[in-house]
Design a protein around this nucleic acid. Structure first.
Length: 417
RNA sequence: CGGGGUGUAGCGCAGUGGCUAGCGCGCAUCGUUCGGGACGAUGAGGUCGGAGGUUCAAAUCCUCUCACCCCGACCA
């Protein structure tokens, strides 16, 4: 892609109301556009990264046997009434009416809908286990959107649902998801810790969250400095007098010591052992081999894509801009020329031909501006062509200060690695 | 939802009762530049968030309202 043809307009300063770093950088680099509080468009650069995250998630979940599907965003109230969540969940569930004044709910999550679908598929122990998932829009009437992409009212979630004969089957698939999730976060380029969390409005037998440790995080988590066991502060509780203090006498749930530390984290993934809450309420029943009717044992598993994207930036940036991990960068290469347009065009063509994702800054502006945007946008490699490079090209990593001179063939070989 | 804050050009801001509302960046044209957002010249761009009120006169004072941000509560 050429800069001159791209839907891009960078800005030296961020809007004043953007305070979190990911919000600022996403705005400055024109990765996103705020339509209203909690509603963002992903502009082409943002969407590139989004798609890469999407693909990584899909690959890893497919690898553990998740079959992809897609469910509606508008739900007839019927299913939400079956589980009583239509009334229990509170104002976060966005309710709407159609022209006939009938109730509908927007997809806050999809347990009810997937359970409804599962009734069409599952009726015997022979139909179990099953594992399906989707990447689909969620809408939640949040009391307060915040931090740009960190907490929005509409976002995309990868959500998967497991259906098992019994808790043993659930435990097994739950472990698979823990592995897959760790693998996803690793590939996306963030370090996470898994914490015990409360089940909240999901109900069920237990839940875990995947937290990226960051000061901008809105979750408080308590980490045992001895055995590293971590829990969401909502489980152990923080003292009422001071939200920064762990409740007196609190002990690690695992090793029972009191060496607990309070940290802040961003929840990037959440998995739930739902048990039979939904299958009982919605009558998702199977017959076992003794002709006994039993409720299916379920689990649900979710990752918010936009939040994950923002989290990566929270964890990976410097004073000049974003530092995208190779795996999810919009482009691999930011190509710059300094008054060497003809040569740059040739290099651009060769890189494209070699299948390298290259963003060519073909604007007629000074070098400082191009370097500035290269740092701001944060692609892993910067390639410069100038009178100084003399038939070669200069390669510089976003993370390094040093640059090296390479021939074009060497460059392509390097980038293909 | 409680508390706080902000709305003046695309972005950042100045302007606390007075005459054609300014500045920086950005944008347009021309020229000079060209290894870290360079310089000069000339331009374009604003119903001062909206409505109502007070006043001879309102961006400025009053009332209402809308929007956005931050802290908290809440959070599948």
């Amino acid at each position: 892609m050429r800069y001159s043809e791209s839907f891009i307009k960078t800005n030296k300063s961020a809007p004043k109301d953007a305070e979190t770093i990911s919000h600022q950088l996403l705005m400055r680099g024109s990765f996103i556009h705020p339509l209203g509080a909690g509603f963002y468009s992903l502009l082409p650069l943002g969407f590139k990264t989004y798609r890469k995250i999407y693909n990584i998630i899909t690959e890893e979940l497919n690898a553990i046997g998740v079959e992809d599907m897609i469910m509606p965003v508008v739900h007839p109230a019927r299913v939400w009434k079956e589980t009583n969540r239509f009334f229990e969940v509170g104002p976060e569930l966005w309710k709407i009416k159609n022209r006939a004044n009938e109730d509908f709910a927007l997809a806050m999550t999809h347990e009810e809908v997937v359970t409804d679908a599962a009734k069409q598929i599952i009726s015997s122990y022979k139909d179990l286990p099953k594992l399906v998932g989707q990447i689909q829009t969620k809408v939640r009437d949040e009391a307060r959107a915040r931090g740009g992409l960190l907490r929005t009212k509409e976002f995309t979630m990868q959500d998967a649902y497991s259906f098992d004969l019994d808790e043993k089957g659930l435990d097994k698939v739950y472990q698979k998801f823990i592995k897959a999730y760790n693998q996803i976060f690793k590939r996306v380029g963030v370090e996470t810790v898994m914490v015990e969390s409360s089940v909240g409005a999901m109900g069920g037998l237990g839940a875990n969250e995947f937290m990226l440790l960051a000061d901008s995080g809105e979750d408080k988590i308590i980490v045992c400095s001895k055995c590293k066991h971590a829990v969401n502060a909502e489980v152990l509780g923080v003292s009422k007098d001071d939200a920064k203090q762990i409740k007196a006498g609190a002990k690690c749930l695992k090793c029972k010591c009191d060496k607990l530390e309070l940290k802040r984290g961003i929840e990037v993934g959440n998995i739930f052992k739902l048990g039979t809450k939904y299958s009982v309420a919605q009558k998702l029943i199977y017959k076992d081999r003794h002709d006994q009717a039993k409720p299916v044992v379920m689990g649900s598993y979710g990752i918010g894509l936009e939040r994950l994207m923002a989290s990566v930036i929270e964890a990976s940036h410097d004073d000049f801009g974003i530092i995208w991990p190779n795996s999810i960068t919009p482009y691999q290469v930011y190509l710059i020329d300094i008054n060497e347009q003809k040569k740059a065009e040739q290099v651009y063509a060769k890189l494209l031909k070699a299948g390298i994702e290259v963003f060519y800054d073909d604007r007629e502006v000074g070098p400082g501006e191009k370097f500035g945007d290269a740092d701001l946008l944060g692609f892993p490699y910067r390639v410069t062509i100038s009178s100084k490079t003399k038939g070669k090209v200069e390669l510089k990593k976003r993370t390094s200060k040093k640059a090296e001179l390479l021939t074009i063939d060497q460059l392509i070989r390097r980038l293909k690695k």
